[in-house]
């Protein structure tokens, strides 16, 4: 383990960490602006030009608010809940390839923290851990509404993880690899994007991503008008901020995963025909990846202010009786398609 390698990876981790937090902070502003746009309002516009400093103001407010820990709660787990939620949200970015490699003289810098050959499964594992923060926080609050929210979150995540896994299996049959770097590299150009090969799989995946992030129409764990605030009813100050921030970071990471798995990651049309140097192509690729991510974040918000929340039985029916059979059918169809392609269209 050379020192240069450690410094390179450490710098990359810090940059990605900063970007995650920055994107999450400005997503809160974007959410309010988009909500205002869809509802014919102006939205936040006092702090800075067009509300540019609103996230800073919100952050400062969160920090200076009084931290209340209920006396009947479990003190340690009460603090562990939001910390775990933030932790699991942030570690997902480790395996995402943010771009191709940059070359400075002799050194080649990969824009990916860790290229492990079970990358997709790592993402899947991190997603499945994400529910612990909510469950522990909700239970430790010692409040019936919080507990209801936590239990809803657990059963919802378990149900939608299965459908998500099934959609990923169909994707793996096409890509033949579990490494995210290789999957991104396979989709060069425009026609090779996985979404053209797996449209149904992508539909299942994006619905499950909404459910895993607890976004409307699946935000039953925190539905305000039946559960007060759901799992974060008892939270205040920066611990509440931790939960809200974790939701926005999750949204950012799952957008990045969707862009990488189905929409070509850092690849963009005609990237090999421009005749530009490799470093420039890489930088443009990073910009394209972020454009795709921001589109998906916008899509998350667009859906939030368009589709009303589901009832709980509708949520379970959709997960178990619609998405899982569709996922299995998708696997069978993909298998048949691969065999037909290999036999007749060689």
């Amino acid at each position: 383990m050379e020192l240069a390698f450690v410094i390179e990876k450490f710098a990359l981790v810090i940059v990605i960490f900063m970007i995650s937090l920055g994107v999450a902070a400005y997503s809160t502003l974007a959410e309010r602006k988009i909500a205002a746009f869809l509802q014919g309002r102006v939205g936040p516009h006092r702090a800075g030009w067009g509300g540019m400093f609103q996230p800073l103001a919100d952050g400062a407010k969160m920090f200076f608010k009084e931290e209340i820990i209920p006396t009947q709660s479990n003190q340690f787990l009460f603090i562990a809940g939001p910390s775990l939620a933030l932790l699991t949200a942030l570690i997902g970015s480790a395996v995402i390839p943010w771009g191709q490699s940059l070359t400075f003289g002799d050194t080649v810098v990969q824009l990916q923290v860790a290229d492990i050959n079970v990358g997709i499964l790592y993402i899947f594992g991190v997603v499945s851990l994400g529910v612990y923060g909510i469950m522990i926080g909700g239970w430790a609050s010692n409040n019936k509404f919080s507990l209801m929210g936590a239990i809803r979150a657990a059963s919802q995540n378990i149900s939608y993880e299965i459908a998500m896994g099934l959609s990923i299996i169909a994707l793996l049959m096409v890509t033949q690899s579990l490494s995210l770097k290789e999957i991104a590299a396979q989709q060069s150009g425009f026609i090779n994007w996985n979404v053209w090969a797996q449209p149904l799989g992508f539909l299942i995946f994006i619905i499950c991503a909404f459910a895993e992030c607890n976004r409307t129409p699946f935000d039953l764990p925190e539905s305000e008008n039946e559960l007060v605030g759901g799992y974060h009813t008892e939270y205040s100050g920066m611990k509440l901020g931790g939960f809200l921030f974790a939701e926005y970071i999750n949204m950012f990471i799952s957008s990045a995963v969707m862009a990488t798995l189905y929409f070509g990651g850092y690849n963009f049309p005609f990237m090999n025909d421009l005749g530009l140097p490799q470093n420039i192509i890489t930088l443009i690729g990073v910009l394209f990846l972020f454009a795709k991510i921001f589109f998906f974040i916008f899509f998350f918000m667009w859906v939030r202010w368009t589709v009303p929340r589901f009832r709980y039985d509708q949520l379970m029916n959709l997960g178990w009786k619609v998405l899982i059979p569709l996922g299995i059918a998708n696997i069978v169809l993909t298998g048949i398609w691969i065999i037909v392609k290999d036999t007749y269209f060689k």
Partner: peptide
């Protein structure tokens, strides 16, 4: 990674779920 996903991510969530219920 399968131990991570299945035991930590799924089975233990169900254990916790039942205990909290």
């Amino acid at each position: 990674i399968v131990n991570f996903i299945v035991y930590m991510g799924a089975i233990m969530v169900l254990f916790l779920f039942v205990l909290m219920l």
